[in-house]
């Protein structure tokens, strides 16, 4: 394999990993606050279709991303009200959000299936993109990829170095103690869930505005679910999510790589690879029960009712 091909593969892995990075960054913040939102796939699909419709209607990809962010946020609010205010089961509510989003996105997108738009164009960053290997792999993408880099580092800083990060972790580890020291637990959780929705929206927009760029029913193909596995893979650490996202991105394009190498394996069998890889990773990471208990937010998935504190 020559070095040009390797660079191309890694370039594609970054591109394929970017939607996973966005959505998993949103989910990790949500989970750190103690809320498990299984509705990622639904929010992502809604972001994808609304982003596409907005960009198609206005001709501006930027407005498309903005619309997708708002849509993702609205979707996450439905989840937040049910789970945080009405104490609904987080698993069931998340599933409902995914089923709803899958249906609604197919419904409102049925008119634009197969239409194409002018998505974001790649921008090579001066100087940085001239670095051999790295320049092509990391610095000749579109603006959303660069935003995902910035977002990762910003979140690493906020989560690990600031008061906001401490508050978030306190709420996710021990909401009762957090409440006792005056933190508004539900408010923090609302914000965390909404942040997750916004990020899922961007992630969806990346799929329909950059990656393909078009709208097809169910185009996210389980990426919302893979992102949930990615959070476990990263042991709830922001920095590791980036690494994980690109590894999963690589697994998703392995079929192209193997076909490129002239291996004659059915594309349908190779299409299973990301899902098989996800299962394998889940097994390896979770096998150590003690370690997982240590790393996962302790209040993850457990409802918190401030009325019971009085």
């Amino acid at each position: 394999m020559d070095s040009d091909l390797i660079v191309q593969i890694l370039f594609a892995a970054v591109k394929t990993g970017t939607p996973l990075l966005f959505i998993a960054l949103g989910e990790v913040i949500c989970e750190k606050s103690g809320v498990l939102n299984l509705g990622q796939e639904g929010m992502m699909l809604m972001g994808a279709v609304v982003g596409f419709l907005a960009a198609y209607g206005t001709g501006s990809a930027g407005l498309g991303v903005l619309a997708a962010m708002i849509m993702g946020c609205v979707m996450s609010l439905i989840f937040a009200v049910l789970v945080l205010h009405l104490g609904a089961n987080q698993v069931a509510t998340g599933l409902a959000l995914t089923i709803f989003g899958t249906g609604l996105s197919a419904f409102i997108g049925s008119g634009v299936v197969g239409q194409t738009i002018q998505g974001f164009q790649p921008i090579a960053i001066p100087l940085l993109s001239d670095i051999p290997f790295i320049g092509k792999i990391l610095f000749s993408h579109d603006i959303l990829v660069y935003s995902s880099f910035a977002m990762t580092f910003a979140l690493m800083f906020v989560v690990n170095k600031t008061r906001i990060g401490l508050t978030l972790k306190a709420v996710g580890e021990n909401p009762h103690a957090a409440n006792a020291i005056g933190i508004k637990v539900l408010r923090v959780r609302y914000l965390a869930v909404m942040f997750g929705g916004v990020m899922a929206g961007i992630s969806g927009a990346y799929m329909s505005l950059v990656y393909t760029p078009m709208w097809v029913e169910n185009m996210t193909a389980g990426r919302g679910w893979i992102a949930l596995a990615l959070v476990v893979f990263a042991s709830w650490r922001v920095g590791r999510i980036m690494l994980g996202a690109y590894l999963f991105g690589l697994a998703s394009i392995m079929h192209l790589v193997l076909q490129g190498l002239g291996w004659s394996i059915s594309p349908n069998l190779l299409a299973m690879l990301p899902y098989v890889a996800t299962v394998a990773v889940m097994v390896i990471i979770s096998a150590d029960k003690f370690k997982e208990k240590l790393l996962a937010p302790r209040a993850l998935g457990k409802p918190f009712d401030p009325r019971q504190m009085a």
Partner: peptide, 13 residues
């Protein structure tokens, strides 16, 4: 026909 899956989600909500 996607309206069915949307109604299912709403129903569960």
């Amino acid at each position: 026909v996607a309206v069915v899956s949307m109604f299912q989600g709403v129903l569960l909500f």
